[in-house]
Amino acid sequence: MPKSVSKLLNLSRKYSIWAYQWGLACCAIEMGAAFASPRYDVMRLGVIPFPATPRQADLVVIAGTVTDKLAPAVLRLYEQMPDPKYVISMGSCANCGGPYWDSYSVTKGVDQIIPVDVYVPGCPPRPEALLEGIVLLQERIANEDMSARWKGDPIVVG
């Protein structure tokens, strides 16, 4: 793909992310503050937080503790998202288990189940930190090579 086309595609993709909110615990409130409150407005970055279904989303923000009981549901929802998709893991519970690192029912980090692009540390991270994570993700998208994503093994459904 010629470079200018790639750059244009990436530019349009990074400023029109549709974010699916997988808000689980306390971080969900900070994510809500980042997405819905007029103070830490995320729509100025082009991220629209409205899709209620994963089928129309580009980005999923996993905010909160993932338990072993919930892990199959997380995987299922991730697989329902169409490519290209990105994952932001928000908060220390989703990054590595967090304050519940020794619990018998907590998955120690959501990256054990799905691949993560950006980790936002904090307990809970301030809404500004989440915005910085989204900005980092936008930089990553800007530097992406779309054709390389499609090369490789064919995607088998079923």
Partner: peptide, 14 residues
């Protein structure tokens, strides 16, 4: 319930 069960009562013992 149980999708957010983090085991508080066991964690408080340590």
């Amino acid at each position: 319930p149980g999708y957010m069960h983090r085991g508080y009562e066991k964690l408080t013992e340590v």
